[in-house]
Computed example of a mutant assay.
Amino acid sequence: MIKNKSDHSLVYTDEFINTIEQDFVFSNKPINRFKVKLETTKNQNAEKKTLLEELKKNINSIENCNLKSNSNHLILGDGKPDSPIMLIGEAPSANEDESGKTFQGEVGTLLDKMLLAIEIKRDSIYLSYAINFRPPEDRKPTSQEIKRYSIFLKKHISIIDPKLIILMGSSAMEALTGSGNKISKERGNWKEIILDNKTYPMMISFNPSYLIRFPENKKYSWEDLKKIRDKIKELKIKL
């Protein structure tokens, strides 16, 4: 509206109206916020997939690595990349190196039972390793190897961006905490790691392969699992 100079009354003029942007599109249909959220999730998942493929190429470009030269497969990870929970084991063994997948055979069966005990299905989380190639004779990775691959592991975590990390085994613990202590002294305690200005809570526990050899320690793993269950409730994580 503008004021007419002659009678000072308020009038509408075509000149004024034409100065208003006219590229408005009106619709009686409500915004489908679920669809918008779904599209956003698809875009994020596509971006993660691209970043994970790049990470795998970077790991595969490592030279003069005894682990790589003695392995059949690079085991990056599997499961749900958009899961709020990331589980990190120590290193692939013969079963994983043959199949190209994480936590196979007897170890995988035990892990499934452990997760189901706190109402988690394996396919609802993301699983990986501190070391991406099978160590010869399934030996424990050296501190030098753990340190070398920890660079990739930290990048891996940043890509997945979970709300909670479960570390299983001393190699996984050392990769992210730098601690070479016995896992029996460190397990059962929540720790934190900061990556790209984000803080991730971590629970350290025994690796399933260790529990198969020393089943008397399953009672301690159960205590750890209950703490993980409580943290999931506290953070209101939905799987």
Rank of each mutant, 00 (worst) to 15 (best):
I193D: 02
I120L: 15
P208V: 04
G169D: 01
R148S: 08
K219D: 10
P81W: 05
K3R: 14
N64V: 03
I204R: 10
L76W: 09
V36E: 14
P135C: 10
K155G: 04
K227C: 02
N197C: 00
I120N: 00
P84D: 07
M86F: 13
N60F: 02
Q104N: 09
E96Q: 11
I151F: 08
L164F: 09
I88E: 05
S205E: 00
I31L: 15
S158A: 15
K218L: 14
K3S: 10
N32M: 11
F24D: 07
G105S: 09
S99F: 04
L67K: 02
W190V: 04
Y126W: 13
A91K: 03
T102E: 08
E119R: 14
I228C: 01
L10P: 03
D112Q: 13
I183R: 05
R122Q: 12
L211M: 05
L116N: 15
S221N: 14
N66C: 03
N60V: 00
M86C: 10
K154G: 03
Q44L: 15
I17Y: 10
E53G: 04
K57S: 10
A117N: 12
R122T: 06
P92Q: 08
K182V: 05
E63I: 12
E174M: 08
S143T: 09
I131Y: 01
P201G: 05
F24M: 06
F103H: 11
T19K: 14
T41D: 15
K218R: 12
N181L: 08
E47S: 14
L195R: 00
L176V: 02
F24K: 08
N70Q: 13
F152A: 01
K147S: 14
N70P: 02
S158D: 12
L110G: 04
E54W: 03
D224H: 01
S69L: 07
K185P: 00
N4V: 06
P136I: 09
R134H: 03
L116W: 11
N70S: 13
I151R: 09
E39Q: 11
T177G: 01
K236S: 15
I146W: 05
D7R: 06
S150P: 02
N181M: 09
N197K: 13
I160T: 06
L10Q: 08
G100V: 06
K236N: 15
E39V: 11
K233A: 14
I193H: 01
I131A: 04
L167C: 09
E53C: 00
S143Q: 07
L164N: 03
K238S: 15
I75K: 04
E234H: 09
Q104H: 02
I146P: 08
N189W: 05
D230H: 00
D7V: 04
Q44V: 13
N66T: 07
L52Y: 10
P81A: 14
K155H: 06
I183M: 05
T19W: 01
P135E: 05
I193W: 03
S143M: 01
T50P: 01
P215M: 08
Q44Y: 07
I194F: 12
